[in-house]
């Protein structure tokens, strides 16, 4: 875990191209597992426009993970392309009952070729710490119900199921 933690850093402008590819892969995996999470046709354009904005928002945390096998202090480390990322957001919900600062873990993705090295666990841990540092009173994360690995990763980090998000199509009658 220590090696993986040292491979995680805040996202930079120079990561934008790799981040776009990683995010499209993340969304594509969810769509592949559940057709209801299909991508919209302009998902790439929207992501390319959104990422630079998100990077500048104080209530949003965007982290990247590098290959833990590479020395983070070694030559070329500054130019190493991210192989994983995580994004979180600090929000205030619910509006009707007691206001609560919720740290939302929105997205965590590790390139398939770099799984099993602890990067996902390290990203969840560091993202949680960053959101708590910004004032989160509770952490929440939504994962596709078909993604057992994502749920297991969160449960290893101390998360427990709270709600189910249900969906129904009206077009089907």
């Amino acid at each position: 875990m220590d090696e993986a933690r040292s491979a995680v850093r805040a996202a930079r402008r120079s990561d934008l191209h790799a981040l776009t590819d990683l995010r499209l892969h993340f969304l594509g995996e969810a769509a592949h597992a559940d057709a209801r999470l299909r991508l919209m046709p302009d998902a790439r354009d929207r992501t390319e426009h959104a990422l630079p904005v998100w990077m500048g928002q104080a209530d949003r945390v965007l982290l990247v993970g590098l290959d833990p096998a590479h020395d983070p202090q070694g030559p070329g480390a500054d130019n190493a392309a991210p192989v994983a990322y995580a994004m979180g957001l600090l929000g205030a919900v619910p509006p009707v009952l007691a206001a609560q600062h919720v740290g939302e873990i929105l997205e965590v993705h590790v390139d398939p070729a770099h799984r099993g090295k602890g990067l996902g666990d390290a990203l969840v841990a560091i993202l949680g710490e960053a959101l708590i540092g910004r004032g989160a009173q509770v952490l929440r994360a939504a994962v596709p119900s078909t993604h057992e690995f994502a749920r297991a990763r969160l449960e290893r980090a101390g998360f427990a199921p709270l709600q189910l998000e249900l969906e129904r199509s009206l077009d089907a009658g």
Binding site: V138, L139, P144, S145, A160, L162, R168
Partner: peptide, 14 residues
């Protein structure tokens, strides 16, 4: 009424 699971929301107290 026709709804089915899409996502699971997990929580961790701080």
């Amino acid at each position: 009424m026709g709804w089915s699971d899409l996502e699971t929301v997990l929580e961790r107290a701080v």
